[in-house]
Design a protein around this nucleic acid. Sequence first.
DNA 1: CTGAAAGCGCTTACAG
DNA 2: CTGAAAGCGCTTACAG
Lengths: 352, 352
Amino acid sequence: MTKRSSPSRSENRGITIADVAKAAGVSVPTVSRILNNKEYVADETRQRVHEAIRELGYTPHTQARRLRGGVSMTLALHHPIESPHELTAVIETPYLTGAAAAASEREYFLNSLVSKLTPETLLNMYRSNQIDGIILLQVCMDDWRVNLLRENNYPFVMIGRCADLENLSFIDLDFERAILDAFDYLVELGHQTIGFLNYPQNWREAGIGPAVHSFDGYQQALKKYGLTSCYREIGLNSVEEGFEGTHDLLLENPELTAIITVSHMTAAGSIKALTQCGRSVPQDCSVMAIGFGGDFASVLTPSLTTLEWSPYEVSYQATLMMTDKLGQGHLPAQQILVPPTLVVRESTKAVT
Amino acid sequence: MTKRSSPSRSENRGITIADVAKAAGVSVPTVSRILNNKEYVADETRQRVHEAIRELGYTPHTQARRLRGGVSMTLALHHPIESPHELTAVIETPYLTGAAAAASEREYFLNSLVSKLTPETLLNMYRSNQIDGIILLQVCMDDWRVNLLRENNYPFVMIGRCADLENLSFIDLDFERAILDAFDYLVELGHQTIGFLNYPQNWREAGIGPAVHSFDGYQQALKKYGLTSCYREIGLNSVEEGFEGTHDLLLENPELTAIITVSHMTAAGSIKALTQCGRSVPQDCSVMAIGFGGDFASVLTPSLTTLEWSPYEVSYQATLMMTDKLGQGHLPAQQILVPPTLVVRESTKAVT
DNA sequence: CTGAAAGCGCTTACAG
DNA sequence: CTGAAAGCGCTTACAG
């Protein structure tokens, strides 16, 4: 094997299927057939061609294959937040790596969309063959993206769900069940006065899935156990909001012995507020969170009891659903609701 | 405007430049020129063509343009960890979103590589025109990726740096300076016995940038202030490691009044260990971390004083460097060392 | 200012 | 089992 010493960029390009054909003394279509494991090819020919490929260091040109095949082999992942900076605070790494891992396994490229998406841009991505399909995050009950894609019959998959799910593929976390499980767990521990810090009001009003379903779960829990409501809707991404929300709950109902939040940030705020009021967690008050646990949950003092999901797994599955749909034509819609897992850490305790 | 009612997928494809040309009564090259703002075109022609484009909802075919242009308009982002699961724990969202934002601005696609990369695969990505360039994360002093790409003259940019930087473009965090700044700050507050929990030993031995440069910074700090060493090399991603490392430091030197760590997880472990030993933070011992602050730093109790960088900004800049290099041919190498920012929160305090 | 021709690198029928 | 031909959708010289 001769070592090429620092070839210039242009030398490095341009080994084409024609070069291989010439080197192996066959025609271009024959090389193509061998590359794609098609039909019958004489063993001897196959070997000569493989040798030529190896010697020339040939690799098929991705763009050309895609053009010919009429596919882009590219998927997009989209969260409806308008700016990359906000996105950064909202989307967690596993959503990105999970989707990337699945895409890569199926030999798709994955593109994370980070800027504002308009209906026009979205349609153009399909029309211009930039993408074959899209994975939608943060779906709301009446979602323009869903409506547009459904109407135009473009392939997509949701992480989340909208109101009308007929014939649509999705994977979503079962928020209702999570809230109910949280109450089950705390009531079991003897808690009777339980505060709940839910997603912000404007989320629920905008029909954003988690907010809507958590609210439903909460209503059911109240009814199931005959509890009186002790409830606030607050922002998700600041310790401050959790801190203030908790103070509000305590003012409203000083007998509180447990608090449920829907994010780790607000849970951290809760713990701070309780500590500041001289209530230690979990001795005087339990705190638990619905969410993604992991690092955040274990880093807190005390570490946080959670009902959690694996966002990596969810995103991974969604992406496989997308490639399945693309690969196999008219599959029936897949609809998956993922139950949460209770992970007991140090922040919850039975009432004594 | 007529509304097309749920056209089938195949109807949605296939509006080509030829369709536009026919509709506007001009030739295909003319449409192409207008699309690309080339040369002189009669105003009247231009208008007719634009109208046709609008009416047909035409968008140029991405793959065809790329094939013709000989470019993929695609960038890759690579961290040398071998499995997607490990990657998830190690890479932070802003690295992904920052790069994605810059790529998107420059109309590039960005692909996050999540699986094991071999020299063969890496070369093939360029050869097959899958990517035009790559952004390398977690570069080590003698990095096979750098060596290979340099030798083959393929475009790349580093977030980090290797030993031989001649003619290479990089942006990196100034770890040496960060360690020195940390010591400056603590010494200023009156601390004389300062423990340092550094990156794991195998990182330093493997020549991984942050470990090497932090070690250098530490040596300089010891010399500068004539301090005696109080040092451990520990794993980064578990609270446990920080917990145990801190216990070890305390055993070795009970007079410790401050601890510096290089990750938020280990800082959380430090705080737990100190608390458990009856030392409250920051009254009895200060803790500070070099790293990415943000959410983690503010979620801890007490919130964490840090020397931090914006990973979003770093990744964003690196990606712009990459597209600049690709766009403008032979630019001189850009080399940027980013100084850290001191963010004082609750975990540090002057010695009384 | 505009069109006819060639070609980017590949694959798929269509003949042999 | 293999090759000659056509074409995926576009852009770039080259003539007019």
